[in-house]
Structures are given as C-alpha cells and as structure tokens.
Nucleic acid binder design. Structure first.
Lengths: 129, 129
DNA sequence: TTCCATGCAAATCGTTTGCATAAAC
DNA sequence: GTTTATGCAAACGATTTGCATGGAA
C-alpha cells in the first residue's frame, strides 16, 4: 500500500466501524456522505488493495454481491442464502489440526480467516415460501 | 422439476461425471460437444433447477465464477484464491453439534453441505508472486 | 518531477430475462 | 391443446479497466 489518500482513509474507517458486513455499494454510499465526489471505482480499487494488505476481509457468497469485514478477533460466518445477510458466530474449529489435515489431503495451505457456512436465517424462515 | 429434456439430461450427466467442480461455462462447453445447438441460457437455467432440486451443489467463491458439484458422499472444499480451483477433503466437523451452536448463536439454520475453506494451492504456491 | 491514486465512462464478466418457437405430456 | 423448455439476443448487476487529470512523496 503506497500513497495516502483521503478516500482510502474514509473507506477503511467505514469498514472498520461497520458491524454488518457491508457490500461494496453500501460502502460506496456511506463514504459518499462524507466525500460526495468519491467514485465507485475508487471504492472498488481500494477494497481490493485493503484485502490484499489484510486490513479487511472479503466474503463471497452463494447469493448477492461480495461483502466486507474488518479484520478483528477471529470469528466465523453463517450466511443466509435467501437474503444474503451474514451473521457472526464463534466456534473452536481447531485450526492447527485442520490446517495440517487439509494440506496433507489437498496441498492447499489454508488461510485462517474463519469458516463460512450457509443456511437460512430466522426472518427468512418466518416468511413462508 | 417437470418435463424431461435431452439437454437437461446431458447437463446432469456432465456434472455427475466430472470430478473437477466445473463452472457453468465449462459445463456448457462440455454439453455442446454432445449437443452442438444447446444454448448457454439452457445450461444456466437447468443448473439453477438442478440445484433447487438438490441434484447438484453450487459452490461460490472469493474468486472466479460459481462452480458445480454432483451430490455425493459428504465432503468439504478447499478453494485456491489464486486460481479458483476447488479441492475436496474429508474431515469430521461434528455437524450436529455445530448446527445447534450456530442456530443458538445466530438463528441461522445451516444446511449441511460441507464446509469450504480458502487458501493457496500447491501449484500457485510454486509460481512465486 | 516522478509515481501513485483519482474520477469518469466504457468495457467486461457472469448470469438472467423476454419473447417467439419447439418439444413434452 | 396446454404446459414447460428451448434458443436467441438483449438486459442486467457487480466489478474492472483505460485514460486523462490531480495529489502525494
């Protein structure tokens, strides 16, 4: 990450202060209230840079656009495949053991970023259909 | 799932016979060799129907297009965030316990489709940078 | 003064949709 | 005959890119 910019600063702040796993569009809209001339491409470009530099995490899902998450204490995600919302949960997955096993079985060296699971959330369950 | 069609038949067969988690495009190309007039929208439409009917699974990732997977013995996925390839592995995640815990913590009722983890695969690790 | 980041608009990628035709039941 | 599926092309949502300009070191 090279040069400072007002926009990047604001994008980091927005993601770090949000606890609802915002989409790029939501981040863009939020930054726009502080900095009305910011462009969508700046937001996308910076989100990419911030993910690369491990300042934020990116969450990809079965449904809807990608979402972003500040890097905090390790936690896991339960994603609703109806509405796309992301919920946090804690559970001890024994990453060290898991990591070794996966490396042995697949050759993939996993990054310990928490685990994501899909399902259906409470409010979507209530809306029958 | 209502009416039989030659195309749907071939799409199911293609996914079930593949062990490399093909993308919709790859499935389309493969079906096209058997049925040159098939259209991409037929493939996309049918993949959707087949996922709904639980004949195949859909895998969404941090990188690249969605991939598909025949419904087989339960297994988990390690996904390379460089090349997008998907690798299978087996590990006992104690789903029952996990499911209860997630429901309690988030209200999300997870579907037990296996767990996906991200990392970097062997061949991508070798190509430095 | 060189490099990096921005804003804009156009391009791209993956996927979905509307509509007329064709196949299944 | 009525429904359901197809093929085509156009539309779509999310994201990326090329390019000229502006700001940072």
């Amino acid at each position: 990450m090279k040069n400072y910019s007002r926009q990047r600063e604001e994008i980091i702040k927005t993601v770090q202060e949000s606890y609802d796993h915002p989409t790029a569009e939501e981040i863009y809209l939020s930054v726009k209230t502080k900095d009305p001339d910011v462009s969508r491409s700046t937001v996308y470009r910076n989100l990419g840079v911030l993910v690369e530099n491990n300042l934020i995490n990116k969450i990809s899902m079965l449904v809807g656009p990608d979402r972003y998450d500040a890097v905090r204490e390790k936690h896991n995600h339960a994603i609703c495949t109806k509405c796309g919302k992301v919920f946090d949960f804690k559970y001890d997955f024994e990453y060290e053991k898991l990591k070794k096993m996966i490396l042995k079985q697949t050759g993939v060296e996993i990054s310990e970023k928490g685990i994501a699971l899909e399902g259906i959330c409470n409010s979507c369950k209530k809306l029958k259909n």
